[in-house]
Design a protein around this nucleic acid. Structure first.
Lengths: 125, 125
DNA sequence: TTATCTGCAAACATTTTGCAGCGAG
DNA sequence: CTCGCTGCAAAATGTTTGCAGATAA
């Protein structure tokens, strides 16, 4: 594990919402463990490959990252207010996807399911 | 409806796979109804707003467009080989999303579900 | 030393915007 | 004349790459 990877992981440990690479880089810039933007991107790529962090593309096309809890396949429930995230496993969905695909003669390669909404505490405001 | 919108729609009528804006622009460039890239983007934006075309972001971040069949909320089954697309409605998924969200105290704002795989004819090759 | 990591600057790709000209009503 | 449509060129954005120097095994 490289210095950049350690720094990025530390930044992600901070909270568990999805953060952009630029965001992480900015946070690190002013800390004692500053890392170049390039290295942040490279570290994130490795960490995603190692399944240590999840990556989700926002609706505006930006990639965002988050330390992930399990290396099982899972989906996310993301609060648009505060960024809080719940990881959910969804065997029913996996089954449904396979079924519908077969029904149309498709062999599934991959699928994505992301849900955004407002969490309880943000809804109260 | 503007000239650009008509041209883009005509290009999309050609086949019913998801195409990038650049792709559509290139196709039109050599036709008798050439349109500037800017106008292609602007036309696509309007058409998406009018729910005449669907938009899906590829895993590489590119936006792709396709004439869409219904203005009901639906999901896609996209063949990675030939781009063939099936629109599927999924009441079961909608229900599941709402349920899981409620369970975690979330109010759903939106969700995306895209499935990619190989269609029958591409699998045979 | 040899391989790997780092980070600046530059390249890249896609999409958006500023603005002047054009054309329809 | 006026207003919206057009499209070039330039900006903006987010990400990746080339490369030379730093670092570590």
């Amino acid at each position: 594990m490289t210095r950049a990877q350690r720094a990025v992981l530390a930044a992600l440990a901070h909270d568990d919402t999805f953060r952009s690479a630029q965001d992480i880089h900015a946070q690190l810039r002013d800390s004692d463990s500053a890392v170049g933007l390039t290295s942040v991107y490279r570290a994130l790529q490795s960490l995603v490959e190692a399944r240590v962090v999840d990556v989700v593309r926002t609706s505006s096309g930006e990639l965002t990252y988050r330390r992930c809890g399990s290396d099982e396949h899972h989906h996310h429930l993301v609060c648009t207010g505060c960024g809080a995230t719940v990881e959910v496993e969804a065997p029913a969905i996996e089954r449904w996807v396979a079924e519908v695909a077969t029904e149309h003669g498709y062999v599934v390669a991959s699928h994505t399911l992301e849900v955004t909404g407002t969490c309880r505490s943000c809804a109260e405001m």
